[in-house]
């Protein structure tokens, strides 16, 4: 891990969160890059922790590669050391949609959700479930949008699993921007449904999932 250590030392920590410690690498083969380390979580039994970190780094690496290959807007993977739980990927200069929403005009926000619907459809079409599709895992800048953080992602072409992404997104909207949630989600669905053979079935499972939290009036 000598080379990696040196790389980390010359980088700036830009975010420390549940997923990983995220560094901005000044120049990786001459380009600005993101270095993501899944650090051990002290609150977990280390046997469990190691397994989870390795599995998530592996999945994120393979899935980023697959999605980028399909032309979907995700960071390009530059380097992966799965044993150390380290990924190096393209640096996206954007801000999280969660932050952006507080400053955006409604029509611009609506446009992003329309784009997002198409991206989610493409991702699901590629057989990938994001697993944590929330407003912090969507980056935006000047009308462009990217998906990031694929640590909880997995392969599936089941509408039941696709519905999980819709549910996560809707929950994220409901808790973060309650007053805009309905309108933005509707826009998301409008573009998610276009030419989507799975749509009806995904929506059926989605409405079932919606009622799975505690104490909904009817089930």
């Amino acid at each position: 891990m000598g080379l990696l250590n040196r790389l980390v030392e010359s980088s700036t920590l830009i975010s420390r969160n549940a997923e990983a410690d995220v560094y901005l690498v000044d120049g990786f083969l001459g380009r600005p890059a993101i270095l993501k380390i899944r650090v051990p979580k002290g609150y977990r039994d280390e046997r469990l922790d190691r397994r989870l970190r390795q599995m998530r780094s592996y999945r994120e690496a393979v899935i980023l590669h697959r999605l980028r290959d399909r032309g979907l807007p995700v960071p390009m993977l530059y380097f992966a050391s799965l044993r150390d739980g380290v990924l190096i990927m393209e640096y996206i200069e954007g801000i999280a949609l969660a932050q952006a929403l507080s400053r955006l005009e409604l029509e611009d926000a609506v446009r992003y959700f329309s784009i997002l619907g198409g991206v989610a459809r493409g991702m699901h079409g590629a057989g990938v479930i994001h697993g944590d599709l929330n407003l912090n895992n969507i980056l935006v800048r000047d009308g462009d949008l990217w998906l990031i953080d694929f640590g909880l992602s997995y392969w599936s072409d089941s509408p039941k699993d696709m519905a999980i992404d819709l549910d996560s997104l809707r929950r994220s909207l409901d808790s973060t921007v309650p007053s805009l949630a309905e309108r933005l989600f509707e826009e998301f669905l409008n573009s998610y449904r276009e030419g989507n053979n799975y749509y009806d079935e995904v929506l059926r499972f989605y409405s079932r999932l919606r009622r799975m939290g505690r104490y909904y009036a009817e089930r």
Binding site: A18, N136, S172
Partner: peptide
């Protein structure tokens, strides 16, 4: 921990 990041 994940929710901490989601709170605006």
């Amino acid at each position: 921990e994940r929710a901490l990041r989601a709170v605006p």
